[in-house]
Design a protein around this nucleic acid. Structure first.
Lengths: 343, 343
DNA sequence: ATGAAAGCGCTAACAC
DNA sequence: GTGTTAGCGCTTTCAT
């Protein structure tokens, strides 16, 4: 019922000490005797005091607030990244400001102003593709650390955390080759995608390395809609009977391909299921987001988890705040291959 | 290069006025002459001044910060809600603090303390199922407005924005009935789900209203995995040959059911595709998240969009801040039926 | 219509 | 070890 705010002064009075002492106890900085420390803490407890962070950051130098800019938080990749960042930060008693710059980055300037106005200690940008040099310059002037959590390689001049798309493609391709596949297709994605380009690089390079054929008609673009993927798969398999394995650009493509293969009366995966008349096709998908759909059917996936990228980005930011002038780092997360029965 | 912060004082000097005047211009409150106003604004412009919100909220009464608590932002529903909230708030020049209380609500107390310590003007909770009475009491004492953005009915004592699950089920069922279906099944979800219970209520009620049979063996639980849904669908259709339509608990279930129906050699949707030997099964799904997979195949969906819930929650919060003592409101969002060819 | 001055709650020098 | 005190940048009476 009493909306009166409890301040550090109240705590000091209740504990019979000065505000300085309380402040020092709060930040754990000073050399305070155990006895006093305990008295202060119990005063805090009984009064139900919560430290006013605004005031703290007004006077002090750190706010313990990190800003996040994404184009739209509803994109699963960025939602996962945000979740990872938030986990790390909250464990450190820090908090996260969430801002959205829109699909085309229209509000990016507003996001930056907003965040800097609130005194964040640093900004993590998901997909920095909209970041202009001017903005990076501005951040530098404000001494605001910038960290980019991305899906593909984007910058040289700021810290970037990203998955190793090329390596992932290589691992996936090798996995298929080691399971005896020689004619491998790549399905899905748009040709304008940087992520896809990186993956195709790894895919193609690995084929060449193993002396296997790389046919451009085996690389097909495809909407991420499942039914499109199913259709494309049927088409591909009909026209190119030699293909025995498909590398799928993302989870929904893999799901579509799965149903496409099944729908043709063929089988996916392990040999024991193979019938005389059906052809067996191996599927392997890229997937940075843990989709419930993935666990069953048992498809093999290769990925750097988006959450992991969030963890790294948050940790990198924490370091960067402590060492603002350290050299720029690119952290490239190694992929993990999760084998699930089908190859 | 100059990390010196530009304060309101600098602006005042540059414009040849007092800080008060600048402050009044910033908040648009005072009766300031157009001429002065303009001088101040151009000073702000040339100096690149950004208002220090911490200081503003320390002295003033509003922070323009809203807190959001979700269990995990990577859950698509909450990500959508967050996106909606953020859109509204940013348009108002406000910002959003994102906190995660964990799948089991373990960190909820920490989230609340954290947010209140940062002086948020209000807190939106996604899924208030972890909110104890004690916490609600605490928020009330701190005069912190609480708004709940939920999937189902949860509270009576605080503002809640939620979808109308029962009405959605009714609309979906009526849609099927009007398209001639008499034997309708419900597939998916767990029996412990409140959302599902509300939907089943609407479903069953509508059947009764139309004098149609409600058979409990036509209501089947199912994991949200697509393949499980496909299997369950085949099973259901095999054992109950009369069933001609299935109401699916969520998008992934509908997708699975789709492939299940197709996999049996039956057809989904419009009559023109119907063959002599195949049976036609209508599918309709619930879906609060716009999943790319939905657009193709053309399945009919019924939903209250999660983003819409975010919009409403944000708007409700804005109202609530202005009128803290207004009566508690439950905003129940009407569902929309998106017909896409199959019925 | 504008300015002077008193804090908001806290931290950080600097005393003791 | 602990207390005193001067601000952080802003809003807000209260004068003018």
């Amino acid at each position: 019922m009493n909306p009166k705010k409890i301040t550090i002064t109240d705590v000091a009075q209740h504990a019979g000490v000065s505000v300085t002492t309380v402040s020092l106890v709060l930040s754990g900085k000073g050399r305070i005797s155990d006895k006093t420390c305990h008295r202060v803490n119990s005063a805090i407890e009984t009064l139900g005091y919560v430290r006013n962070q605004q005031a703290a950051m007004l006077r002090g130098s750190v706010s313990n607030v990190i800003g996040l800019i994404v184009s739209d938080i509803s994109e699963p990749f960025y939602a996962e990244v945000a979740a990872g960042i938030s986990e790390i930060l909250e464990a450190q008693g820090k908090v996260l400001f969430l801002t959205q710059c829109g699909k085309n980055g229209l509000h990016l300037a507003r996001c930056l102003d907003s965040l800097s106005g609130y005194g964040v200690d640093g900004i993590i940008v998901g997909s920095g593709r909209f970041l202009s040099d001017e903005m990076k310059q501005k951040a530098r002037e404000m001494r605001l650390p910038l960290v980019c959590a991305a899906r593909a390689s984007e910058f040289d001049d700021i810290d970037v955390i990203r998955p190793d798309n090329s390596q992932a493609a290589k691992m996936a391709t090798e996995y298929l080759i080691k399971h005896g596949h020689r004619q491998i297709a790549y399905l899905g994605g748009e040709s304008s995608s940087l992520t896809r380009a990186e993956r195709l690089g790894g895919f193609c390079g690995t084929l060449i390395q193993y002396g296997l054929p790389f046919k451009s008609e085996w690389v097909v673009e495809c909407d991420c809609k499942q039914q499109d993927a199913a259709e494309a798969t049927k088409n591909l398999l009909n026209h190119h009977p030699k293909i025995t394995a498909i590398l799928c650009h993302k989870a929904s493509i893999a799901m579509g391909a799965y149903f496409g293969v099944i729908g043709m009366g063929n089988s996916v995966g392990k040999d024991e299921n193979e019938s005389y008349y059906s052809r067996q096709v191996a599927l392997i998908g890229f997937g940075d987001v843990p989709e419930a759909e993935l666990t069953d059917p048992p498809l093999t996936f290769i990925s750097s988890s988006a959450r992991e990228i969030g963890y790294s980005a948050a940790n990198r930011m924490l370091q960067r705040i402590d060492a603002p002038d350290e050299q720029v780092q690119h952290i490239i997360l190694p992929p993990k291959l999760i084998a699930r029965g089908s190859a």
